[in-house]
Amino acid sequence: MRYMTIRMENLTKMIGHRLIVNNLSLMVEPGETYGFLGPNGAGKTTTIRMMLNYVRPTSGRALVLGLDSRHHDYAIRQQVGYAPADCSLRGRQSGAELLHNLAKLRRGVDWDYVEELAAKFNLDLTMSLDQLNAEGRQKLTLVQAFMHRPELIILDEPSKTLGLQSRQVLYQLIHNARAEGRTTFLSSSILAEMERLCDRVAVIHQGNLIAIERGVQLRSRAMRFIELRFATPVQPEAFANVANLQNLIIEDNILRCTVCGDPDALIKAASQYRVVDFVSQTPNLEEVFQRYYGVEGYVAN
């Protein structure tokens, strides 16, 4: 059997009669940045927790770094950095104290690197957990996930509460890890993040794996709602033959449309007029899921 950093084999989790994760099988190659995309409640967090033995699978198994998560979680966690989602850290201890305690459990880490990470995230380690806002707490969990330079980094919705600047720092850390040949498993409900960072993306909905996409494929199919305001009224004919356009509506000097993939042709067509405003919005995940995967009521396998 070929070595995979993560290998899930028919992983299933039921809570009572509720199916949370259904027969999930996927493989993550060493050095890959692998995305795990799905809306809230899709089963992403439960899957990750099964990989780290927080939650026991009802059936199937997860091999992480070649080890069965149920029986070798201790050895797995030595080489894994995990940043949980919505970690509601509270308490009077400071961020530095918390990280020191966690470092002790790892029998020491390079503290200079911890401080470097904190500085990159602009995180004040002297503040108590109670004083930190949601973003600060998320930064703290990210620092502890990266602080021991793990072989495998598992990030569960890491950028949900992060500001723009901190997101860039996180993306840079993920890029660095990839350059060093380390693997990242990134769970998110933000499509743009997946398009930008991941080599491959597993798409999950209601506990079912519905697709595994290459990052390039995602980028080529990226969908945006675009609104252009021009200085003067525009002719509909000018945009009639533009590739990748859907739902084109032109009212006087306003153009609204949906672009699938590359917006280059639209921009070139618009350049013959004076553009006074440009708004681009990515659709929410449910819209993408409906459009690409027809997920309403969809059951894989």
Binding site: C87, G91, L105, R106
Partner: peptide, 15 residues
């Protein structure tokens, strides 16, 4: 568990 510390402890190598 309530203050989230347990989640982070269990992310470290501790049984």
């Amino acid at each position: 568990e309530e203050n989230g510390e347990l989640t982070l402890w269990l992310a470290q190598p501790v049984a």
